[in-house]
């Protein structure tokens, strides 16, 4: 779990800003992982393999691991099928979850697809509205 959480934090390190904190996303991210492992189809093997791969890649790329994973590696077209699957089922899905849980804030906006922003009956509008500007 910690290895995967570190990867998730690496996404913030690559694209985030002070506008969003992964600490605020932790409980929903844990739910995501749990349901992906327990539900069908189970992602247990994807995550287990991801942990192994990350360990191997860390030895090769050291501190530049996330730079390699997110920008340089072109993992989606890598000859190693394990890396292609890792990119698709773990990295890409983590990126989508990260953006939806609040990562979008680094690029402006109050709401985004998948962001649970609360009832519209709260005094603070949960999205940027015409009347409110």
């Amino acid at each position: 779990m910690e290895v995967l959480w570190n990867l998730f934090n690496g996404i913030r390190g690559a694209w985030g800003s002070d506008a969003c904190r992964t600490e605020d996303m932790a409980s929903q991210w844990r739910e995501f992982i749990q349901l992906k492992v327990v539900g069908s189809p189970s992602y247990f093997e994807h995550y287990r393999s991801a942990c192994e791969l990350l360990s191997e890649l860390r030895q090769t790329h050291g501190d530049r691991l996330y730079q390699y994973l997110f920008f340089d590696g072109e993992l989606h077209r890598h000859p190693d099928a394990r890396l292609v699957e890792f990119k698709r089922y773990v990295v890409d899905e983590f990126i989508r979850v990260y953006v939806s849980l609040g990562g979008f804030r680094s690029f402006g906006g109050k709401n985004y697809t998948g962001f649970v922003s609360g009832s519209r009956y709260r005094s603070q509008r949960p999205y940027r509205s015409y009347e409110g500007t």
Binding site: E74, Y98, F107
Partner: peptide
């Protein structure tokens, strides 16, 4: 689609410009 740009490996600066 911010996530799509990130998945494509675009940098933060590139996404800023796109948005």
């Amino acid at each position: 689609d911010l996530a799509k740009l990130m998945i494509q490996g675009k940098t933060r600066a590139q996404i800023e410009r796109a948005s």
